[in-house]
């Protein structure tokens, strides 16, 4: 590199601290740098060499995150431990990561207390599905519907839902659902893969803070009774559901649709 002989030229250390560590230059030297081609070339050489070597060498010798976690959890093979320990003596970045891993292991609680936000597994925006008024069922149709069976259509914005409760040939009860997105017409159902939960109504109300436990010892589940996903044809099936009142939650990407007052006899 050519050196600049101007007395205002920053020396190498000043230029390095300016180029690599963003340290300020004295004002007169910054002024010199603004017009001196030689110093600008020196600065550029330092910056580019540094940047290039950094991209080629940055953390290339470091063990993976998995290896460090295994090391901290004593899951690493004995013959791998010395090389990790030797690296930890040399590398402040990995030493810092190991300190963090040890901290999280020491504080690990499989069931940490739920905070306010996590006590509401339902997303912030939720829509209550509205039942669609049904036409009167003909006498012929009524004769083939067994006692307790029902079907009901719902709508929640663009989502159309048909729920049908019936019995299988072996007597198990079945809650079937058909989902359609009214704004999109395509060969595959756009609802495919969406998770649908079925909660006991009382559990759902307690979880949402809409009801209080009848006694301090009353246990309630924050887990759905059953979980399923909408298939490629837009269908879901819940089977062998115990009698009672239920709430269904459909987890759309941007909101949850809630279907209330489902009675299984």
């Amino acid at each position: 590199m050519t050196d600049c002989n101007n007395s205002m030229a920053p020396n190498d250390e000043e230029l390095l601290s300016y180029a690599l560590d963003d340290e300020p230059l004295p004002r007169e030297k910054e002024g010199h740098l603004a017009y001196c081609f030689i110093c600008q070339q020196r600065l550029d050489d330092y910056k580019r060499t540094h940047a290039y070597l950094l991209t080629r060498l940055y953390r290339t010798q470091c063990p993976s995150a998995t290896m460090l976690n295994y090391y901290c959890a004593d899951l690493l093979a004995m013959d791998q431990v010395p090389s990790i320990e030797s690296h930890l003596h040399a590398c402040p970045l990995c030493a810092n990561e190991v300190a963090m891993i040890r901290q999280t292991l020491a504080n690990f609680d499989p069931f940490p207390p739920e905070d306010e936000a996590s006590a509401m597994p339902i997303t912030a925006r939720h829509i209550i599905a509205s039942p669609v008024p049904q036409r009167r069922t003909s006498a012929a149709a009524r004769s083939i519907i067994r006692e307790g069976e029902w079907s009901q259509q719902y709508r929640a914005e663009a989502l159309g839902i048909l729920l049908q409760f019936s019995y299988s040939s072996n007597g198990d009860n079945l809650l079937l659902g058909v989902f359609s997105n009214g704004y999109v017409v395509s060969e595959t159902n756009t609802c495919e893969g969406i998770v649908v939960d079925l909660y006991r109504a009382v559990d759902f109300q307690l979880m949402q803070g809409l009801a209080r436990p009848s006694s301090p010892s009353q246990q309630h589940s924050t887990m759905p009774l059953q979980i399923t996903q909408i298939d490629d044809l837009g269908n879901i099936v819940f089977n062998a559901i115990p009698g009672g009142k239920y709430t269904m939650v459909v987890h759309l990407p941007d909101c949850d649709v809630i279907i209330e007052d489902l009675t299984i006899s």
Binding site: D45, R48, Y52, T55, N69, E97, T104, F108
Partner: peptide, 27 residues
């Protein structure tokens, strides 16, 4: 514990990726 460790690794990998210098051309 193993699942927790997997979370830890995912967080660490993201930090490593986020701090990795951008590709620079050969000087």
């Amino acid at each position: 514990s193993y699942l927790h460790m997997c979370l830890n690794c995912s967080v660490m990998d993201m930090v490593r990726d986020g701090t990795r210098p951008k590709e620079a051309p050969l000087p």
